[in-house]
């Protein structure tokens, strides 16, 4: 039987590890479905933000007053780079027999992700210093919820990465660990997409108007 080249989203293990490749399909598909449900969650937050950022300013700060665009741009770059480095980690998972490359790229991804979270927290802190707290207006409530939900996802991804690094040590590159890394990769790339939307429709739109 000819193997379908792309059994599931993300990097397919293919002939480099046939056993894992064959069992991966339903597991990755299930996770992919979960990601779609998660996207709905973000979509709802975006829709809410879209209306509240215009209608819910309540005489308080407006987007242009409080957004730090250069900072958001650097965050975007960090996150995009982390997606590339995670891509490299996936390649190492697929092609390299040793774990050294894999761990290196994962740790690099972790640092970039942590840097992103650090900068985001700094942004929040600056906003709060200016009195732009979520309790101030509907606009700020929906801004903080949307961006923080993304941030919490990234943080969860970081924790997940730590657990998987530990599992790499304990179990080595077993099928389970490989499949978990592949799911984390999907999660990570998906969060990037969400961030692209946040950067565009929250930050750029907010400042451009």
């Amino acid at each position: 039987m000819k193997r379908q080249p792309l059994l599931h989203p993300g990097l397919n293990l293919g002939s480099t590890d046939e056993y894992s490749h064959d069992v991966s399909e339903p597991i990755i598909f299930g996770f992919w479905v979960f990601l779609m449900a998660d996207l709905v969650l973000f979509a709802i937050l975006f829709a809410t933000y879209a209306s509240m950022s215009v209608q819910g300013q309540a005489g308080g700060p407006t987007p242009i007053d409080v957004f730090d665009l250069p900072s958001a741009f650097i965050e975007t770059m960090l996150l995009l780079t982390s997606s590339i480095t995670f891509g490299m980690a996936s390649l190492a998972l697929k092609y390299k027999a040793d774990s050294l490359h894999l761990v290196f790229w994962l740790v690099l991804t972790f640092c970039l992700g942590a840097g992103f979270i650090g900068m985001e927290l700094r942004d929040f802190w600056v906003m709060i210093q200016q009195g732009a707290v979520p309790q101030r207006s509907g606009f700020l409530s929906s801004f903080f919820l949307l961006v923080a939900t993304h941030g919490i996802h990234v943080t969860a991804g970081l924790f997940w990465m730590l657990v998987l690094l530990l599992q790499l040590r304990v179990f080595g590159r077993t099928t389970e660990v490989k499949l978990r890394l592949m799911r984390l990769a999907l999660f990570w790339h998906m969060l990037d997409i969400v961030w692209v939307c946040i950067f565009t429709f929250v930050y750029l739109f907010g400042v451009a108007q």
Partner: peptide, 15 residues
Amino acid sequence: FLHISWHSHRDDLQL
């Protein structure tokens, strides 16, 4: 990054 294209498994693309 996610390797979704017209050559993907039909289920994934449909989804």
